[in-house]
Amino acid sequence: MQLNSEVITTPPRASATVVLLRDVPQKGLEVFLLRRHTASAVWGGVYVFPGGKLDEADCTPDLHAHLDASPQALHSALGEPDLDVHTAAGLYVAAVREVLEECGVLYARLHDSQALAHDAAQRQHWQHALHGGQAFVDVLQSAGLRVDTQHLAPWSRWITPLQPSVTNKRFDTRFFIAVLPPGQHPIHDNIEAIDSVWLSPREALDRYWAGGLPLAPPQIMTLVSLLSHSCTTDVLNCAKQQTPALILPEPFDDEGVRTLCYPGDPRHSVAQRAMPGPTRLRFVAGRFEPVGGFEDFL
């Protein structure tokens, strides 16, 4: 992979990703990963977390009337003072909408109920409606649903470098942590995603290193950030106590090897670390890996 000297002048596209977690008896924390269709324009064939681009409709007052919290409260929880209030709320909407569309998990409840909507057939119907082009606000309105944002906790924010690395498209992605609702079972949609798997963070990294689980750098580093957590409660408590890490990778050519460095690396413009794990990944033999090998993940 050669370093491209061009600079992308278009602003990054706002997007949202959901790191879906569950607890498994005698095993511990697991994370849900989808494999992108090989024809996908971005990360084709790679395992990612459910997510997608922020739509203009996600930021509208009509849709925000179906939220369980005010746009102002969600703006405060996201921890980005300079961000427009309705865009902040829209990012929560995008996260909920995308996780329903991509894997059939819904963070919403009936307006007159305290229970999350968990009927599988009904969720599949709403999922198909979104794939068919129905607006999310119409799904919520017709079903009498209230979006349950309180189950989403901001975890990190990743901004694609100005200089092309893996893709020429730029994204400004907010990663949310969310625990799988009781009674719901995600599955890939066979449209945007062709496979799915539940794995512990360590198992996912082991499979990546063995060559059986293609991953992108944000997924790699997010899995590393989860290694020290034993259960979903631990992760959620951590998320509530921290400001989401801002990560803008900076690419450079290291003696002919494509390299990404992160905050805290000697080559990065930000001296303070933003996350655990290696501060740089090198593109070697078709994959990104730390300078010190697998042990650097740990």
Rank of each mutant, 00 (worst) to 15 (best):
44 G>E: 01
216 A>Q: 07
43 W>Y: 14
123 R>H: 08
74 L>Q: 01
241 Q>M: 12
225 S>G: 08
284 V>K: 08
175 F>A: 00
234 D>P: 04
81 P>F: 02
167 T>H: 14
243 T>A: 13
232 T>P: 06
243 T>K: 10
59 C>W: 12
177 I>N: 01
222 T>V: 02
138 D>I: 08
41 A>Q: 11
181 P>V: 01
106 L>F: 13
197 V>M: 09
232 T>N: 04
137 V>W: 11
76 S>V: 09
119 D>K: 05
285 A>F: 08
211 G>E: 01
155 W>S: 02
204 A>Y: 14
19 V>H: 01
36 R>P: 00
111 H>R: 12
227 L>G: 03
291 V>N: 02
282 R>P: 05
108 A>W: 00
164 P>G: 09
263 P>F: 03
3 L>V: 04
245 A>F: 01
249 P>F: 07
293 G>K: 05
38 T>Y: 05
264 G>E: 02
190 N>H: 12
56 E>K: 12
269 S>R: 14
138 D>P: 06
153 A>C: 10
174 R>H: 15
59 C>H: 08
210 A>P: 03
2 Q>C: 06
121 A>H: 12
75 H>A: 13
149 T>L: 05
100 L>P: 04
258 R>C: 08
264 G>N: 03
99 V>E: 03
17 T>D: 02
159 I>Y: 00
15 S>E: 00
54 L>Y: 09
64 H>I: 03
66 H>M: 13
212 G>Q: 06
201 P>M: 02
83 L>V: 02
2 Q>N: 11
172 D>G: 04
121 A>S: 10
129 A>S: 14
58 D>N: 08
108 A>D: 03
179 V>S: 09
278 P>Q: 04
31 V>H: 05
200 S>V: 01
150 Q>G: 14
78 L>Y: 05
172 D>L: 04
125 H>W: 13
214 P>H: 03
26 Q>T: 12
216 A>C: 05
31 V>R: 00
242 Q>R: 15
66 H>I: 06
24 V>N: 10
104 G>T: 07
146 R>M: 08
230 S>C: 08
248 L>E: 14
40 S>L: 00
4 N>I: 15
138 D>T: 14
174 R>W: 15
19 V>P: 00
54 L>Q: 08
57 A>W: 06
13 R>W: 09
188 H>T: 00
281 L>C: 10
278 P>M: 07
156 S>F: 01
88 A>Y: 05
53 K>W: 07
246 L>M: 14
184 Q>M: 15
131 H>D: 06
263 P>M: 02
11 P>Y: 02
145 L>D: 03
197 V>E: 10
121 A>D: 13
215 L>A: 04
200 S>Y: 14
85 V>G: 11
96 V>Y: 04
251 P>C: 09
227 L>I: 12
243 T>E: 09
131 H>S: 07
268 H>K: 06
279 T>I: 10
272 Q>R: 14
242 Q>M: 13
35 R>Y: 07
37 H>S: 14
31 V>N: 03
236 L>C: 12
121 A>W: 11
246 L>Q: 14
262 Y>P: 08
15 S>H: 01
31 V>Y: 10
265 D>S: 11
51 G>L: 03
96 V>A: 14
285 A>G: 04
262 Y>T: 09
113 S>G: 04
238 C>R: 15
166 V>L: 13
125 H>I: 13
250 E>T: 15
235 V>W: 07
113 S>C: 06
89 A>G: 11
216 A>N: 04
289 E>C: 07
147 V>D: 05
251 P>L: 09
4 N>M: 15
25 P>T: 03
150 Q>M: 14
